[in-house]
Design a protein around this nucleic acid. Structure first.
Length: 429
DNA sequence: TCTGGGGTCCTAGGACCC
DNA sequence: TCTGGGGTCCTAGGACCC
């Protein structure tokens, strides 16, 4: 009997993705430190290499770092997810030309399988990298290993040591032990702050030490997931390439407001807007939802103010993706949980009980087929218009007519690739 | 004034049933 | 009053990821 050929995983990861997206359309930003801020321009969620070198940490509150930004000429951007999402698609489409065995893991990462190809994995990786750079302007790093977890490790090495040219392979690497020794325990994929702290109490400080622990000991303390991490570090694949896109279990839209809010009608408009956004995403997945939750809370950082938070669920009469149904349910829940006199700082809408619309069993209280077809057509038209002309071009009255005043976005870049009115202009002087 | 948003999975323990 | 084992389902909490 011949052994099945070993799998070879590659992890492709965009370097400082959001910062790189901003830079791709603005050559003046080359070499300049860049930070991208969260919603409301609250905290730093992405940094260019230059910004990291200035010691700006991930999650840094923007207001505390203003002086540093000014002093070093840091280019500051509000997050522009329309741009990042579209750039992500371009990167992924480019990678997919090289192999069909690909799992899009996040907006800026993909796992690929590089066995079953003619050329050496490292050579393929270098070609993928160069092509993505050329076609999209986004720099990526690629790590290669016999398991996903080791591919992650290799990716770290590729990022940290530029002398490898952005691609590094750990398969059959003679010095694997030394490399694993250099990986801090919290930097292992699947081991976060809590487990890291716990492991350090046992004297486990790096990936190599962890990989030599007893399987059952790890399982008992870190669940089956921790055991998988252990085995994967030893080169035993436990996590397969997931190529089918699963139906989401939940869809959330929530925001922290730029200021606080006491007015129930305004809150109702905002929550209606969130319900509409979840509906759009639900329909984009071809799904319907059975339950809708609304939650709201006061400012958790202002302990001198009265605190209140609450959430409640409404079961929809029949699973639906129609925006009016979702808004109606959300407003009903708001009536239940709203308490006057509090300054609300954050609210959100969550859908769950999600299933594919096609082929599902119909519910007793389902609208008639004619009614369903008609409302489906209305929703589709709305989604098409908003896709073409920008989000919220067309919306329901319940969402309010005011501007999106609740969100602060003082440093927003143009939607270069997804809006005709914001295309970049090239001047040849 | 100022600290994001969106997800997944696992386990322990309680309620309930036979 | 004490006495059992085994199974399922649900929820809360805790961990992780980007």
């Amino acid at each position: 009997m011949t052994k099945p050929p070993a799998t070879i995983f590659a992890l492709l990861d965009c370097n400082n993705f959001y910062a790189s997206c901003e830079r791709a359309f603005n050559p003046k930003l080359r070499k300049r430190p860049i930070v991208v801020l969260s919603n409301n321009d609250g905290c730093v969620i992405a940094r260019s290499a230059e910004a990291k070198a200035l010691g700006i940490p991930m999650g840094a509150p923007a207001f505390k770092f203003q002086p540093l930004f000014r002093k070093h000429g840091v280019a500051v951007f509000s997050s522009n997810f329309a741009l990042y999402g579209d750039m992500s698609r371009r990167v992924m489409d480019t990678a997919a030309r090289f192999t069909p065995d690909m799992e899009i893991y996040s907006i800026d990462e993909a796992f690929l399988r590089l066995d079953r190809m003619h050329d050496r994995p490292l050579d393929v990786a270098r070609r993928i990298r160069a092509t993505i750079q050329q076609w999209t302007g986004i720099p990526v790093s690629i790590g290669i290993g016999p398991t996903k977890t080791l591919a992650k490790v290799a990716n770290r090495v590729a990022k940290k040591h530029p002398e490898h040219g952005g691609a590094f392979s750990l398969e059959d690497h003679p010095d694997r032990d030394r490399i694993l020794t250099d990986i801090e325990i919290e930097d292992v994929w699947g081991i976060g702050r809590q487990y890291g702290k716990k492991l350090r109490e046992f004297g486990i400080r790096n990936a190599l030490q962890f990989s030599r622990l007893d399987k059952d000991w790890v399982r008992k303390r870190m669940t089956v997931n921790g055991m998988h991490t252990l085995l994967e570090l030893q080169g035993v694949p436990c996590l397969p390439l997931e190529q089918t896109v699963a139906t989401p279990k939940s869809i959330v839209c929530s925001r922290t407001f730029a200021g606080s809010l006491t007015d129930k009608d305004k809150l109702a408009e905002i929550i209606s807007g969130y319900a509409a956004r979840t509906g759009e995403r639900l329909r984009a997945q071809g799904c319907v939802a059975g339950h809708l939750q609304v939650f709201m809370l006061t400012d958790r950082f202002r302990l001198d103010r009265p605190q209140y938070s609450n959430a409640a669920v409404s079961s929809l009469v029949a699973p639906t993706s129609r925006t009016p149904d979702l808004i109606r349910a959300a407003r009903k829940v708001l009536d239940q949980i709203f308490k006057p006199g509090y300054e609300y700082r954050k609210a959100g809408v969550m859908l769950f009980g999600i299933e594919k619309e096609q082929g599902r069993r119909l519910h007793l209280f389902e609208p008639s087929p004619e009614e369903r077809a008609r409302s489906k057509a209305v929703m589709e038209t709305m989604d098409r218009i908003n896709a073409k002309w920008g989000a919220m071009t067309m919306r329901l009255g319940a969402e309010g007519t005011g501007k999106r005043w609740v969100m602060r976005q003082a440093h927003l870049s143009p939607r270069y690739t997804t809006n005709w009115r914001e295309l970049p202009v090239v001047r040849l002087d």
